[in-house]
């Protein structure tokens, strides 16, 4: 998100107004930089044209890694490194199932959440680029990059107003 510095912000009060506004503005040929909401708005990613997240694939891969690690570890320890009959069980036995399941879940969950934090650029002490401070309270904020769009400020402003924005503001970042 380093490209833009000059933004025009459309502030929306209602999620349904926002959804129709996004459709309207995208169909008019304007590029929307991003929409910031205080809560997840269902269908917003679809109307913005975002692709489905590939995080489920990451979760599966990490889960598979967990299963493999657990089975290799248990087999190595119980059957190869120090084989010993305990309670009449085979060296490699069905008793490996619980630990294998737990490690699958553990590695899958941690791996997926880790991937999520990395791709979303989130980390402790991470700095958020705040367009409008009310976007974590009660307003939906649509940011339009003025450098990315050919339309003039006046044109964009009137489009935003028409689509139901309650306010239109300018926002400049120095960095």
């Amino acid at each position: 998100m380093d490209s833009g510095k000059n933004f025009l912000l459309g502030i929306y009060e209602d999620e349904d107004v926002l959804l129709s506004a996004v459709t309207k503005i995208r169909s008019s040929g304007l590029k929307i930089h991003e929409v910031f909401s205080p809560y997840p708005v269902h269908g917003l990613d679809t109307v913005l044209g975002y692709k489905r997240s590939r995080l489920p694939i990451a979760a599966f891969m990490f889960g598979f890694l967990g299963t493999t690690l657990a089975l290799v570890m248990q087999s190595y320890m119980m059957a190869i490194d120090w084989p010993m009959i305990i309670g009449g069980k085979d060296y490699v036995s069905v008793t490996f199932v619980p630990v294998t399941f737990e490690l699958t879940v553990l590695v899958s969950a941690l791996g997926m959440v880790g991937t999520f934090l990395v791709v979303s650029n989130m980390k402790p002490w991470g700095k958020a680029r705040i367009f409008d401070i009310r976007s974590t309270d009660d307003k939906h904020v649509m940011a339009i990059d003025l450098d990315e769009n050919k339309a003039t400020v006046e044109q964009i402003t009137s489009l935003l107003n028409e689509s139901g924005a309650s306010e239109v503001n300018n926002k400049q970042f120095d960095d």
Binding site: E34, F36, V41, A59, V119, K123
Partner: peptide
Amino acid sequence: YGALSFGWDGAAKTWSRYETVSLIL
């Protein structure tokens, strides 16, 4: 709270991923 919030900005893209992660978790 800034440190605890991990730089959360509430972007639609992040919310979309966040919902996916919650569901799988």
